[in-house]
């Protein structure tokens, strides 16, 4: 059952991401992108990280996709179905995706220590067996609720308080910069 759910979500993500790439109508692409991001949130729920899932929905689906859709709708002739969505750089893109893909797979295998014992234990040896919530909690206590995440993020000694503040300053300056640019446009 758990595997079935995993495969359903995974196929949903892959299909919607694939069609987001090949669709001619850019608005449909944006909608499918939202679907794919929502599917990723589903994977987070499946792994027992509800907080991360909700943040994913709130930020990626609720804000970023809508910004993209806004951008598409407000850009001149962007909704025209005649604009070029595809280009012909097959070799280049194959090389880049290949390298990135290998890098990601290598990283997963070298960092996720909890996968390997579960792989040995499970009879069928499927990777998905180890990705179920049950095995995560069995092998290593991974607590992902707000009460652990919050202090871990901004604890002055162990956490990432400095990085956190740095990011907030960056975002603030981006916000002010965007406003300044928009205002100039209005006056000129």
């Amino acid at each position: 059952m758990e595997q079935f759910v995993f495969w359903c979500i995974a196929i949903f993500i892959v299909l919607s991401a694939f069609f987001a790439m090949i669709m001619k109508n850019i608005f449909h692409c944006a909608l499918l992108l939202a679907a794919a991001l929502f599917g990723v949130a589903g994977i987070f729920v499946y792994l027992g990280a509800e907080f991360l899932a909700l943040v994913q929905v709130l930020i990626y689906v609720g804000a970023i996709t809508i910004l993209i859709i806004f951008g598409i709708m407000l850009t001149h002739k962007m909704m025209d179905s005649k604009i070029i969505v595809m280009n012909k750089q097959v070799v280049m893109s194959a090389v880049i995706t290949g390298v990135l893909g290998t890098l990601i797979i290598l990283t997963i295998y070298s960092t996720a220590h909890w996968i390997l014992p579960a792989l040995k234990n499970s009879e069928s040896g499927y990777l998905t067996h180890s990705i179920t919530t049950a095995s995560v909690t069995k092998n290593k206590k991974v607590v992902t609720d707000v009460y652990t995440l919050g202090p871990a993020l901004i604890n002055p000694k162990k956490g990432f308080a400095f990085a956190f503040e740095l990011v907030s300053i960056l975002l603030l300056s981006v916000l002010i910069g965007a406003t300044v640019i928009a205002r100039k446009d209005q006056e000129g």
Partner: peptide, 17 residues
């Protein structure tokens, strides 16, 4: 849910789409 408030905010933001 132990994150109920966040859940409501996140889920209802779908309406916009």
């Amino acid at each position: 849910l132990n994150i109920g408030v966040l859940y409501i905010i996140a889920i209802t933001s779908f309406t916009v789409i």
